[in-house]
């Protein structure tokens, strides 16, 4: 469904962040992208929806080459790619509902969005999603009144109301405590399964990645150095990706405590 062909990004400073990355993601697959800081994980997902403009290569979503789109066509294509951010990236002075509805901006005209008169089906869907992530009572709270886990749930609802085919997820748990991290990862993976979405999840936490995803990509200096299942991530592979470290000690099994209660 998504194919990256020789996708390359060189920043004006001369840093080669992505070096001819080839990757194919079938419909409905959730994959984790791991790698050290500076490996190009963020650049990779931002090059797909062109928040970062790739230097060369192509990213093809359902037969459409995203890298060649004009700005209008790019906006329409972005509607099909929901994005979830590390620091949640909610607009802090807007309400929870406005943040969720902002996911509909690609579908409504300027005046409707300016006057906050969204179509009723969009509002229904927003409430449904807020209920699904357990925040339907919070619709009129301001985004900066919420806790970290709650904010990330709003971020997830905002991405899903776009009705995307693909989720681009950038370090969804890096600002969260370990328990909330697992709840958020579980929620993302469940929602992808419910809706048949593909997802690319950038993640630092290798143990967490192994717990939830069927496929892991290792990125190092802008190149893919590993592509396999979570069980293939041996200490040797991790050393190859990250450098020398005692991997048995750092990714020791953590007890999965009862974390079904909402955050």
């Amino acid at each position: 469904m998504l194919q990256l062909q020789k996708l390359t990004k060189r920043y004006p400073t001369g840093d080669l962040a992505l070096n001819a990355v080839d990757l194919e993601i079938p419909k409905g697959q959730v994959l984790a992208l791991i790698g050290p800081s500076g490996a190009g994980k963020s650049t990779l997902i931002r090059s797909i929806n062109r928040l970062v403009e790739p230097t060369s290569g192509s990213a093809i979503l359902d037969g459409v080459n995203l890298t060649e789109l004009s700005s209008g066509a790019l906006r329409r294509a972005r509607r099909r790619m929901g994005m979830i951010f590390q620091e949640y990236a909610l607009v802090e002075r807007l309400s929870v509902m406005e943040n969720v509805l902002s996911g509909q901006l690609g579908y409504v005209g300027f005046w409707r969005s300016f006057l906050r008169k969204f179509p009723q089906p969009a509002i229904d869907e927003a409430f449904r999603l807020l209920e699904r992530v357990g925040l339907d009572q919070m619709a009129d709270k301001r985004a900066d009144e919420l806790s970290g886990g709650q904010r990330q749930r709003v971020g997830i609802a905002r991405a899903l109301i776009q009705d995307p085919q693909l989720l681009l997820v950038d370090e969804p748990t890096a600002s969260l405590d370990p328990k909330t991290s697992r709840q958020i990862m579980r929620l993302i993976c469940e929602l992808c399964a419910e809706r048949g979405l593909s997802a690319i999840i950038n993640i630092h936490d290798v143990a967490l990645a192994k717990m939830f995803v069927p496929r892991v990509i290792g990125l190092k200096l802008g190149e893919i150095v590993f592509d396999g299942g979570p069980d293939d991530l041996t200490p040797e592979v991790l050393t190859d990706i990250y450098g020398e470290e005692d991997w048995e000690a750092t990714i020791a099994k953590i007890d999965d405590d009862d974390d079904s209660d909402p955050v």
Partner: peptide, 24 residues
């Protein structure tokens, strides 16, 4: 990042200003 998140939804330039910049 707040502005970037609005841009990623496929908003137009004016919507981007109205939702991503103006509240800030």
């Amino acid at each position: 990042s707040q502005a970037e998140a609005i841009k990623a939804t496929g908003s137009s330039w004016l919507q981007w200003i109205n939702y991503g910049i103006q509240p800030q």
